[in-house]
Write a protein that binds this DNA or RNA. Structure first.
Lengths: 224, 224
DNA sequence: GTGACGGTTCGGCCGCCGCCGAACCATGGC
DNA sequence: GCCATGGTTCGGCGGCGGCCGAACCGTCAC
């Protein structure tokens, strides 16, 4: 336990892990640049993270792509973030534009979080397409039809017996959004439709004009 | 996020946190002794942990009792443990008697874990008193009657809108046990009945002869 | 071949932070 | 009043670990 926490408890490594929490695979050089450290230093850090099985690496061509090793690791990092967000209750904390973007919409490993993620959960709840009891989640029959219509593939449940639908505590909103396999599919399809766009090296995602219309017309969501 | 992980990523502090994961409140001196550090050092560590809201402290008489600040913190620590337990796949790791005791039965903040915790979950599942879908849990009507009969107070749900019933991944068994409010009540009542006994400063709990009989007769469990 | 590029290994510097003993404060028993 | 006990603050020591530049290895393009 100590070793794992110590690995996360370093600014450079935590920055890299946070970037990889976008769900993307990034190269050693990209991560070095994001963490503002030299390539040798980054290489050392990444080596430790891989050795500890927090990250997995797949060599492609002459690059080495790093990614979060498993959903379990992703959940651990979310758990740490959730606790970290509780701190500094009254302490003044200036919000940067980046912060705001992150708070509005981001990926949480493989699903959508932030104001957008919570809004999607709310929309599904309002239409009675889903039941979110605190931690667990369940799609109604209508919900399954709706999401299938939306383009989510709810049958391709991977072999790993992944958690199908669960609620994930959003650290910026302090409310729940949809995670698990269902959440991942909503996110995947949203990207596929061009409703949100991801950028390399950041967890923040952008809601496109097309997405604004799409979420409004399909999910009945409004953005002010 | 970094700060929180860094706090956990120190041997002395992690030892203290692990001891407090028994759910007990412990004094500064007790924690210093458990972590094998001097009282001044422990005081410094505890000060940081309280400042970061990982621990809460309540002064009673001339002692100061420290405890895990919230279920959220407890879940974070469990998450880190779960990841840590994944590591070292084939690496030889000698098990001490203490380890074995911990693996057999322990408290996980406020509920029972280890072989015993998983066995209880299995027993409830076998009798169809509970449904545990991966992360979520739900008591059946018969389950509610059964546990009420057992002496659990399932109506006294605290104001904090605590998660009622959830599954918690057991890091030693790699399977799920019952957590949430239901899990806490099972644990509380088990202690109350003298079926398991806790000892200060350790998460390990002991199954008493009385408990062996009780779990067998009431839950239909067998221990080999 | 040669050069460019991504990545890792090695050596050595430096600073943060955990550690303790000594002193100090607060509470409680007498 | 006294002393004992639990706890914190302070100052200073020491080591772990993060950092970089230089060198090295492998892949690819030409």
């Amino acid at each position: 336990m100590v070793e794992v926490a110590a690995l996360v408890g370093d600014t450079a490594r935590a920055t890299m892990l946070a970037a990889l929490m976008s769900g993307q695979s990034l190269t050693s050089s990209e991560l070095a640049s994001l963490a503002h450290i030299s390539r040798p230093t980054a290489s050392g850090h990444l080596g430790k993270l891989v050795a500890a099985r927090l990250l997995a690496v797949s060599p492609k061509r002459r690059h080495r792509y790093y990614r979060i090793a498993s959903p379990l690791v992703a959940r651990m990092l979310e758990g740490i973030s959730a606790v970290a967000a509780l701190e500094t209750p009254a302490r003044y904390r200036p919000r940067s534009a980046q912060d705001d973007a992150l708070r509005f919409a981001r990926t949480c490993y493989d699903h959508l979080a932030g104001t957008l993620g919570v809004a999607i959960a709310d929309a599904l709840l309002a239409k009675k397409l889903i039941a979110l009891s605190e931690e667990a989640g369940e799609l109604t029959a209508a919900g399954t039809r709706f999401l299938t219509q939306f383009g989510a593939d709810l049958n391709g449940k991977p072999a790993g017996r992944r958690i199908f639908c669960r609620a994930c505590l959003d650290w910026s909103e302090r409310r729940y959004h949809v995670a698990g396999y269902v959440g991942a599919e909503i996110c995947r399809r949203s990207v596929e439709l061009g409703w949100v766009s991801q950028h390399r090296g950041t967890r923040a995602v952008q809601l496109t004009p097309k997405g604004r219309r799409g979420y409004r017309d399909t999910f009945g969501m409004t953005f002010d």
